Simulated scan of single mutants.
Amino acid sequence: MSILKILGRVAIAPAALALSMAAASADTIRIALAETPSDELAAFFVALDRARANGLDYEWTAFSDEELAIQAVISGQMDIGFGTPYAAMQRSKAPLRIIFQLSKLKFFPVTTTKYSALEDLDGEPILLHSRGGGTDSIANVIEERVGITFGERSYVPGSSNRVAALLGGRADATIIDLSNKNKLMRSEAAGDFNVLEMFDVEASDEALFANLNWIQENEEDVQIFVDALLGTWQDMAEDPTIIRQETDPDGPIGQLPQEILAELDGFYKDAVEGGLYDANGGGRKAAQADLEWYSSAGQLEGDPSELNIEDFWYLAPLDAAMK
């Protein structure tokens, strides 16, 4: 299935919402996002702008969910994708590898006040981000550790959209990110909701991955990309306001509503303080945490202590960037 790309416009395709941000060429890196641009992606777009300044030519396509982004990379329609495709890594013949941890699984179960503990959600419906994604894995591990089984799982990408579903009475339980949890619990509606006590998670929520053969064939461009990401993540750890300062007003983030842009400093301050980002891009520590987490979540087969992180991560670009 082809993916439509129209420069500077939005095109609806059967599998994706496609928005092209750079003129395509033979050397253009095609990036598959797992959602449309939002405040959560502002740091990533700052890194992209830095990479472009160093010679990286790219275009991006926003897919409606992570599964479609993963399949687009496996099929060769896209070069680099967003997600944590551990199950696909084991069952696909394509040698997918992660090259950078974008964010950790810092998510929180939030419910209406009819629930006060995770145990209360036994048999109850829950709203999650995407099938097979990070919140789905959190739900799986909650079931395993707490000894419950959720009822029907429904999927709505974007924590802010799931908050809207809570506020609109269309859901009673969901799992949302740190920023949206903080916004909700600081709002006038805070008394209508509970944040349920949750265990700590250090595994990856979003990571960048690609086919290993493609990575090695495009080593220079991949290195430019990873260098820009690492530099941005390290600068953000020192000063979260750098993201707002470097956001291109004419870019996809700069075109978001002013009320969202006005909160970028607060968003990234909360995220950095909450440990959402690893200033070193994850690396071996994140890889090991991922193997343990996604094994528990049922998305990896085998004993995590016997799995080889190099079957899932390609660490050379990040190692080089760290030097």
Score class of each variant (00 low, 15 high):
residue 61 T to R: 08
residue 62 A to M: 05
residue 63 F to E: 03
residue 64 S to G: 08
residue 64 S to M: 11
residue 65 D to R: 15
residue 66 E to P: 11
residue 66 E to T: 15
residue 69 A to P: 01
residue 69 A to I: 12
residue 71 Q to R: 14
residue 74 I to N: 01
residue 80 I to H: 05
residue 82 F to T: 02
residue 83 G to R: 10
residue 83 G to P: 12
residue 84 T to G: 04
residue 87 A to Q: 06
residue 87 A to K: 00
residue 90 Q to R: 03
residue 91 R to Q: 11
residue 93 K to M: 08
residue 94 A to Q: 12
residue 98 I to E: 09
residue 98 I to V: 13
residue 99 I to L: 15
residue 100 F to K: 07
residue 101 Q to A: 02
residue 101 Q to D: 00
residue 104 K to F: 04
residue 104 K to W: 03
residue 104 K to L: 02
residue 104 K to Y: 12
residue 105 L to H: 04
residue 107 F to N: 14
residue 107 F to S: 02
residue 108 F to Q: 13
residue 108 F to W: 15
residue 108 F to L: 08
residue 109 P to C: 09
residue 111 T to N: 10
residue 115 Y to A: 04
residue 115 Y to T: 06
residue 115 Y to I: 05
residue 117 A to W: 03
residue 117 A to E: 14
residue 119 E to T: 14
residue 122 D to T: 10
residue 125 P to Y: 05
residue 125 P to L: 05
residue 133 G to S: 10
residue 133 G to Q: 03
residue 137 S to A: 15
residue 139 A to K: 12
residue 139 A to L: 04
residue 140 N to V: 02
residue 144 E to Q: 15
residue 151 G to W: 13
residue 151 G to P: 14
residue 154 S to R: 14
residue 157 P to K: 07
residue 159 S to D: 13
residue 159 S to K: 04
residue 160 S to P: 04
residue 161 N to D: 14
residue 162 R to Q: 05
residue 163 V to S: 01
residue 164 A to S: 15
residue 168 G to Y: 10
residue 169 G to N: 09
residue 170 R to T: 15
residue 171 A to Y: 12
residue 175 I to T: 05
residue 176 I to H: 11
residue 176 I to F: 12
residue 177 D to F: 08
residue 180 N to A: 05
residue 181 K to T: 01
residue 182 N to G: 02
residue 183 K to C: 01
residue 184 L to A: 05
residue 185 M to N: 01
residue 186 R to W: 09
residue 186 R to P: 04
residue 187 S to I: 02
residue 189 A to D: 08
residue 191 G to T: 09
